[in-house]
């Protein structure tokens, strides 16, 4: 929906720039009118807040007292030079993204390849893997918190059946990070699986058939035919997954609260903490700008890398 609106907006802007059409001519005016409700919401609830964040980030603003003072780049200076916790948070965010993104994409691809075959019950399995995507995030996190208890949790009881003494998943820093990554992957992998499945089904059988006739092995067929044809989908999936992983909040909030020992304290949660527990909106805004830039750099980086490959 948003992409359609943005495309229409782009067409209107290019028409305006090229002056081929009058801004208020019948057809252009209709276009403006059609997209205006969506653009209004987009402007009010996205563009203006994003711009405002840059403004807030150069202030010292206490949300309770509403005192706001212009401090220039002081917040950024403090974040980069005085706040030791910040680098831990960045590290945690990158570990979370670095663990989640490859795992999510690889699993989605394997599932899509498996479920692209024709066998009895394939629709059932597609539904099963997609079901977590439509499950409420809060319910998902809370149920997993119970399942991951040390003694009475379902996961450790299953592990005990095969003689493994499971860890205290959400109370040990390294295991907690592993646990939140895994549960997040299981929650969202279905969406990427469906995207890959759609891409696989759009590949012409002629390519596969031709490669078979040329004697290609299944692995060669995948490596040299299917994988390159999936590249545009992989790019979209990787960008969306990276952005989603850097923005993760609810999952961390409900499962670990950033703990234990700040082991799962990621940037989005840290922003929340500084804003609504420390009441430092200016400082939190500066952190949000850094998250924005980090996300932008990673997204553009992926885009350029793919362009170069192609």
């Amino acid at each position: 929906m948003l992409s359609v609106v943005l495309k229409t907006f782009g067409d209107l802007m290019s028409a305006l720039v090229s002056q081929k059409k009058n801004l208020f001519s019948g057809e252009t005016l209709s276009g403006w009118l059609f997209i205006s409700p969506m653009m209004f919401g987009f402007l009010c609830f996205f563009i203006i807040p994003v711009i405002a964040i840059f403004g807030y980030s150069v202030t010292e603003w206490n949300i309770l007292s509403q005192d706001s003072t212009f401090v220039g780049l002081q917040n950024y200076q403090e974040i980069f030079t005085e706040n030791e916790e910040f680098w831990l948070v960045v590290r945690n965010s990158l570990v979370f993204a670095g663990g989640l993104v490859p795992l999510n994409i690889a699993l989605a691809l394997v599932l899509a390849l498996a479920l692209n075959q024709k066998f009895t019950g394939v629709v059932f399995f597609r539904t099963v893997y997609f079901a977590p995507v439509i499950t409420a995030g809060a319910a998902w996190a809370i149920v997993w918190s119970f399942l991951l208890q040390k003694e009475s949790g379902g996961v450790n009881q299953l592990l005990a059946l095969i003689g493994i003494d499971g860890p205290n998943w959400l109370r040990e820093p390294n295991w907690a990070m592993f646990a939140v990554i895994m549960t997040r992957v299981i929650k969202n992998v279905g969406l990427n699986m469906i995207l890959y499945l759609a891409a696989l089904q759009s590949i012409s059988p002629d390519y596969v058939e031709a490669s078979s006739l040329d004697g290609a092995t299944p692995w060669q067929r995948f490596r040299h035919i299917i994988w390159p044809l999936l590249a545009p989908t992989t790019l979209v999936i990787s960008i969306v997954t990276v952005v989603g992983s850097l923005k993760v909040f609810d999952h961390i909030y409900l499962m670990t609260g950033g703990g234990p020992e700040s082991g799962t304290l990621v940037l989005a949660y840290y922003i929340y903490e500084r804003a609504f527990e420390f009441f430092e909106i200016g400082y939190a805004s500066a952190l949000a700008v850094i998250l924005f830039v980090l996300t932008l750099v990673l997204t553009v980086g992926q885009w350029l890398l793919k362009q170069k490959e192609q």
Partner: peptide, 16 residues
């Protein structure tokens, strides 16, 4: 106090 509680939360986790 709210800041004190937040700032020590990760540290107190180490007790357990």
């Amino acid at each position: 106090m709210p800041v004190i509680k937040s700032a020590t939360r990760g540290t107190f986790d180490k007790l357990w």
